[in-house]
Each structure stands twice: as structure tokens, then as C-alpha cells.
């Protein structure tokens, strides 16, 4: 039996590879970066919402399952450059430091993931201009490494704001969809800040809070246990105040129905999720359709969200849309099962 190609080594890809190996199928696991774990590892995610479990406790077992499986042939810094269909399965050309050349695979799991929105595209927030305007993926690393200081002067901030939906739900930047994670992750970050530094004042600017399902608990606790403050209404622009010492967030408090201007030491932007570069490349490479948002589209998103509609190609994780880690892991398992069935013929 030819191996199953798993493209992408994030939570979905790792989960699919481990699952396939446990079924006894050989796996060819390919990741373009030099590490396993995808975006969570790339940005050093701190605690994961909603249970505030350290990211390592989720990622490490996934990675060690893969690394401990003899049936999985793993390649980092490797990409697929060409694909040719076979009567059953595919020929794929790999390019990487350890392996290059054509390989035959029985089926494919695309777990190519997402990219965070580049907040510089929302000009009025001054990201890239003002050092204390921070993207929340960078803020993850800051709290993970316990360096909660202002980039501009190294001081501990006194007041921090989170601004949700940056690059999500916004036609001005062409991204009208919801990222699903921004609310929970931002609230979680505010909680983490308050846990370590109760003296820091934390505000979340939102238009809707979408801590969906059981995650709502986090939202409630952030208020009644950690004193995170919520302002309904968005910050429309960020400028410098006090001679550049602080940031000035101008917004509307839509509950009080009045414009607000609040100086902050740091403002954290909850950047949205866009189809990853790998996802866009995979769509081209395998000739798969993408939706208006640019994500891969399952043939039957309700009945069979892991099937691409093209025989032998299966989809998992954020390649098909914004997704939480547990969902990505689950889809990895589902795609593994389908790919295994296809490989067995």
C-alpha cells in the first residue's frame, strides 16, 4: 500500500497522521515550516481557550505521537511542487532538504491551515507605525514568555485594550467572515494578564461576543472573577497621545451611545483568520474549488466536511475555514479514516 500524503503539520495534519498510523497505514507527512505544530507553535500560543490549558500540553502529545510512529515518514521544510493523477492515487513531487523527487501516494489529506490577517491592512489602527499596537498573535508569545512590557519603552503597561474583529467581518478589507476564535482568545489573554498582574486595567472593545457554546463560561468568568471590562463598540482609529507616550483609542460606546477617547499603554488587535498561503497553493496544485472567502470547500459541508469531492483528496482543519484546535484535531481524525478507506480501495 502506498503511503497517504498528509500535507501540513499543524494540529489537523498531526492528528490525521497519528490516526492513520494507528490504523496501520503508512504516512508521508510534509510540512513547509521547520517545526511541527502550525500557527500555535509559530506564534508561541500561550494558554488555549477555553480550558486555559498550556498550548504545549496539547501540541506536545500530538507531536510525540507522530514522532513515535514508525509508519510515519516525516519531512519538515518540504513542499509539494507538482501533482499527477494515477489510476488510483497520485504521483507527487516533493522538494525539501531531506527528500526530493517523485513519490506515489494512495490518497491525500490537505491540512494546510490558515494565516492570521495582516493588521497593517487596517491602516487606521497604526499597526506597524506605533510599536505599542500589537497583534494578538504576537501578544500570545509575550504572555507565554512572561514579558508583558511595552515595546516602546519596556515599561509594564497600566491599561490594555483588546480590539476584536480586526480583519474579520469587514468588507473594507474584503473579509466578511467571522474568525470564531478572536473573542475567546482575546478574553483569555485579558484573563491571563489579570491573573499575573491584577493591577493592570483591561478593556475589551467588541461588537458581538462570540464565545460560542460552552466557551461562554470564559466570557462570564472574565468579568465576575477577573474584572475584565467590556465596551460594546469598536475603536475606529488609533493615534498617539501625550506626545507619543500613550495610544489614544477613539471609538463609540454603543450602549451609552457616545463617542469615547481613552488613552491606553497597549492595544491588542484580534486579527482574523484568512486562508493560509499553503491552502491557496494546495487549491491551485490539486485544482480544487475555493469559496468566495478563499478557503477550500468540502463537497458536502454538512454531511461530509472532510471530503473534497475529488476522489482521494480529503480536507481537515482551518484549510476549510476558521476552526478551533479541538475541531481541527477531530477533522484530522475524520479525514484519516476516509483517506484510509480510500487507500484500502
Amino acid at each position: 500500500m502506498n503511503p497517504v500524503l498528509v500535507l501540513g503539520g499543524g494540529p489537523a495534519g498531526l492528528s490525521a497522521a497519528a490516526e492513520l498510523a494507528s490504523l496501520g497505514a503508512p504516512v508521508l507527512l510534509v510540512e513547509k515550516e521547520e517545526y511541527w505544530g502550525g500557527n500555535p507553535r509559530r506564534w508561541h500560543y500561550s494558554l488555549l481557550a477555553p480550558d486555559l490549558l498550556p498550548a504545549e500540553e496539547v501540541l506536545n502529545p500530538l507531536v510525540s505521537r507522530v514522532e513515535g510512529a514508525p509508519l510515519i515518514e516525516r519531512h519538515l521544510r518540504t513542499t509539494v511542487s507538482r501533482v499527477e493523477p494515477l489510476s488510483s492515487g497520485f504521483r507527487v513531487e516533493l522538494k525539501g532538504p531531506e527528500t526530493s523527487g517523485w513519490r506515489e501516494v494512495s490518497s491525500v489529506v490537505l491540512a494546510t491551515g490558515f494565516d492570521h490577517f495582516d493588521s497593517r491592512r487596517k491602516y487606521e489602527y497604526g499597526y506597524g507605525r506605533y510599536p505599542d499596537v500589537i497583534d494578538f498573535k504576537e501578544f500570545e508569545g509575550m504572555i507565554h514568555d512572561d514579558r508583558l512590557t511595552r515595546p516602546s519603552d519596556g515599561a509594564l503597561p497600566k491599561r490594555i485594550a483588546w480590539l476584536l474583529c480586526v480583519g474579520s467581518r469587514d468588507v473594507q478589507v474584503g473579509n466578511p467572515w467571522c474568525c470564531r476564535m478572536g473573542c475567546a482568545v482575546s478574553i483569555k489573554q485579558a484573563v491571563e494578564v489579570r491573573q499575573k498582574h491584577p493591577e493592570i486595567d483591561t478593556y475589551v472593545y467588541y461588537m458581538d461576543i462570540r464565545t460560542y457554546g460552552l466557551w461562554e463560561d470564559l466570557y462570564w468568568k472574565s468579568m465576575n472573577e477577573y474584572g475584565v471590562k467590556f465596551i460594546r463598540g469598536r475603536i475606529g482609529q488609533i493615534t498617539q497621545a501625550e506626545g507619543g507616550k500613550r495610544l489614544l483609542a477613539t471609538g463609540e460606546d454603543t450602549i451609552l451611545s457616545r463617542p469615547t477617547e481613552v488613552p491606553f499603554d497597549m492595544i491588542v488587535l484580534a486579527s482574523g483568520m484568512e486562508p493560509g498561503t499553503g491552502t491557496k497553493e494546495a487549491a491551485q496544485l490539486f485544482g480544487l474549488p475555493v469559496g468566495p472567502e478563499g478557503f477550500l470547500t468540502p463537497k458536502l459541508s454538512d454531511l461530509n466536511p472532510v471530503e473534497s469531492g475529488h476522489p482521494g483528496i480529503f480536507l481537515a482543519g482551518a484549510a476549510t475555514g476558521p476552526k478551533a484546535i479541538p475541531d481541527a484535531v477531530t477533522e484530522g481524525m475524520g479525514a484519516a479514516l476516509r483517506a484510509y478507506k480510500h487507500a484500502r480501495g
Binding site: D118, R121, Q172, G174
Partner: peptide
């Protein structure tokens, strides 16, 4: 690059 991305997205979707 950022400008090109912004252009592509805005022209492609939504408004």
C-alpha cells in the same frame, strides 16, 4: 505587498 493584498481582497469580495 500589503496594498496589493488589500486591493485583491476588496475587489474580490463583499463591497
Amino acid at each position: 505587498e500589503i496594498v496589493a493584498e488589500r486591493d485583491a481582497r476588496r475587489r474580490g469580495t463583499g463591497k
